[in-house]
């Protein structure tokens, strides 16, 4: 039986309007064989979680450049839990200072990609985890 294609919602949360970075990541993940759902800019945590639920996604990648990650990310994770979406792995990218990474991981984030991360690091991460994952 063919392995099913893993579905990734890639979202921008919060008010910053830059989407170049996330679009590049979206394309790279598509080219690595993932189904990437891109719901657009300026989403609230509630809206993102709604998309994840409707799309039955396995992953949520959140990109934040606004500096509000310590507020918004825990909110998203909490909402996912409330909706019974425990299995969804959350990955955070953007301008995340080194000293905030531990706090994000502690609240349930699976991985943080800070400013220094390369595209191939990100793609490889998804591929590696995917090859071990089952659901």
């Amino acid at each position: 039986m063919a392995a099913r294609t893993r579905r990734i919602v890639l979202a921008k949360v919060g008010l910053d309007g830059h989407d170049r970075g996330i679009k590049v990541v979206a394309r790279a993940l598509r080219d690595a064989g993932f189904e990437v759902i891109y719901p657009g800019l300026w989403l609230s945590p509630e809206a993102v979680v709604r998309v994840v639920a409707e799309e039955d996604a396995d992953w949520l990648g959140i990109s934040l450049l606004s500096g509000a990650h310590l507020i918004l990310v825990p909110k998203v994770v909490e909402l996912l839990r409330q909706q019974g979406l425990h299995h969804v792995r959350v990955v955070v990218g953007g301008t995340i200072p080194e000293e905030d990474v531990a706090a994000l991981l502690a609240c349930g984030v699976a991985k943080v990609f800070g400013p220094g991360s390369s595209l191939s690091d990100i793609v490889r991460y998804f591929q590696d985890v995917d090859s071990h994952a089952s659901r």
Partner: peptide, 26 residues
């Protein structure tokens, strides 16, 4: 080539978060 897909139709279908009468799937 890769079987991957970039599914972006939802961007153009904004829905209020608590709207239960609409369901969108890509």
């Amino acid at each position: 080539l890769t079987g991957g897909a970039l599914l972006g139709d939802r961007i153009r279908m904004p829905v209020p978060v608590d709207e239960q009468g609409i369901y969108i799937r890509s």
